[in-house]
C-alpha cells in the first residue's frame, strides 16, 4: 500500500516537473526566436543601407530615364523606410513568400533546395564534431599531461589556426595524389553528386556519400578541435572535484566513479557551448560550401551579397538563423536531460 501510494505521488511529482520542463523549453524557444528575428532585422537593415540595387540602371549608357529608375525603385519597395519594408518582407516570409530576387525570380522556389543542401552538409559534420570533440576532450583529460594528451592538444591548436577556407583546399591537395593514382575521382572534390549521372538506389547513395567525405572532414575537423579543448577543460575540473573523490571514498573504483558521477557533470557545460558557437561554425561552413561547390545557404548568401540582392540576403540569413535557433533549442533540450537541476 505504501509503495503504491509512493509510486503515485512520485508519478504526480514527475509529471509536474515534466510540465515545468516543457514550459521552460517553450520559453527558451520563444527567446531564441526573438533573438533570431532581431538578427535578421539587423542584417536586413545593414543590407538596405549598404546595397544600391539601382546603381546599374544609373550608370547605363545612354542614361536610363529618371522615371524608369523611379518605377523600379517603387517596384522594389525602396520608397518605403527600412522598417516597414522589413515588415512587408517578413509578413510574406511567414506565409512562404520570400519576395523576388533583384532580377525578378521568385525566391521561395529555391529555399528548400538551398536549405536541404546545407542541412545535408552540416548535419553529419556537426554530429561527428560533437561526438569526436567530446570524446577526444574526455580522453585527453583522463590522461592529462601524457605525451598523447599533449600531442592532441597541439594538433587542436594547429587546426584552429588553419583558416577554414584553407583547410578545404589543403584536403584537396592531400587527396589529389590518391585520386590521380586511382585514375578516377575516388572522393570527388566538387558538388553533391556526379552531375548528369543516372545512378539510382544504392549506387546513387554511394555516389552522394563519396561526395560527402571531404567536405564533412573540412567541416568537422575545426569543430572537433574547438569542442575537444573545452571538453578537456570541463573534464579536468570534474576530475579534481570533491564529489568524485567522495564517490571513490564510498568504494567506487576510479573508472566507475568517473563514468557514473563525472561524465554527466563534464558534459553539462558543453550544451550551452554548442548552442553558443554554432553560428560561428555555420559561418565557417560558408567557405566549405564554396570550396566544394555545394550550392547551400552560405553560397547563396555570398552570391547575393556580390549581387547586392537584399531579399535573398534576408532569406538566406533567416534560414541560417532558424538553423541556429533549432540547434540552440536542441542544446536546451540536451541540457534539460543532462542536468535535472535545470528542470525546476
Amino acid at each position: 500500500m505504501t509503495t503504491l501510494g509512493a509510486g503515485r505521488r512520485r508519478g504526480a511529482a514527475l509529471s509536474a516537473s515534466a510540465v515545468r520542463a516543457v514550459g521552460r523549453l517553450l520559453a527558451r524557444l520563444a527567446a531564441r526566436l526573438g533573438v533570431c528575428l532581431a538578427a535578421v532585422l539587423l542584417t536586413y537593415t545593414l543590407a538596405a543601407l549598404s546595397f544600391d540595387p539601382l546603381a546599374e540602371l544609373r550608370t547605363t549608357q545612354p542614361p536610363t530615364p529618371q522615371s524608369v529608375i523611379d518605377a523600379r525603385a517603387t517596384a522594389l519597395g525602396l520608397d518605403l523606410p527600412v522598417l516597414p519594408r522589413f515588415g512587408q518582407w517578413l509578413a510574406g516570409a511567414v506565409t512562404g513568400d520570400f519576395g523576388t530576387t533583384a532580377d525578378g525570380h521568385d525566391i521561395a522556389g529555391e529555399v528548400s533546395a538551398r536549405a536541404g543542401t546545407s542541412i545535408r552538409l552540416f548535419l553529419p559534420g556537426g554530429v561527428l564534431a560533437v561526438l569526436f570533440g567530446c570524446g577526444f576532450g574526455i580522453w585527453g583529460a583522463l590522461r592529462a599531461g601524457s605525451a598523447a594528451d599533449k600531442l592532441s592538444m597541439a594538433t587542436a591548436l594547429l587546426l584552429l589556426a588553419i583558416p577554414v577556407f584553407v583547410l578545404g583546399t589543403v584536403l584537396k591537395l592531400l587527396w589529389l595524389p590518391v585520386n590521380e593514382a586511382a585514375g578516377t575521382d575516388l572522393l570527388p572534390f566538387s558538388g553533391e553528386r556526379t552531375p548528369g549521372s543516372d545512378l539510382a538506389g544504392w549506387a546513387a547513395l554511394g555516389d552522394r556519400l563519396r561526395h560527402l567525405v571531404l567536405p564533412t572532414i573540412a567541416i568537422a575537423l575545426p569543430q572537433i578541435a574547438f569542442y575537444s579543448r573545452y571538453q578537456r577543460a570541463a573534464m579536468l575540473e570534474v576530475r579534481d572535484s570533491e564529489f568524485l573523490r567522495a564517490a571513490r571514498g564510498r568504494g567506487l573504483r576510479r573508472g566507475r566513479a568517473v563514468r557514473r558521477h563525472g561524465l554527466r557533470m563534464a558534459l553539462i557545460p558543453m550544451a550551452p557551448l554548442v548552442a553558443f558557437s554554432f553560428g560561428l561554425h555555420l559561418a565557417g561552413g560558408v567557405f566549405t560550401e564554396r570550396i566544394f561547390g555545394w550550392h547551400g545557404l552560405g553560397d547563396w548568401l555570398v552570391t547575393a551579397i556580390e549581387r547586392q540582392d537584399a531579399n535573398v540576403v534576408a532569406t538566406a540569413t533567416l534560414l541560417m538563423a532558424v538553423l541556429v535557433v533549432m540547434v540552440g533549442w536542441l542544446a536546451d533540450l540536451a541540457l534539460l536531460l543532462l542536468d535535472p537541476r535545470t528542470r525546476t
Binding site: S241, E242, F243, R245, A246, A247, H261, R264, M265, I268, L338, D339, P340, R341
Partner: peptide, 8 residues
C-alpha cells in the same frame, strides 16, 4: 561539494 549534484 561531496554529493554529485545531478543524481538524486
Amino acid at each position: 561539494a561531496a554529493l554529485t549534484p545531478v543524481i538524486p
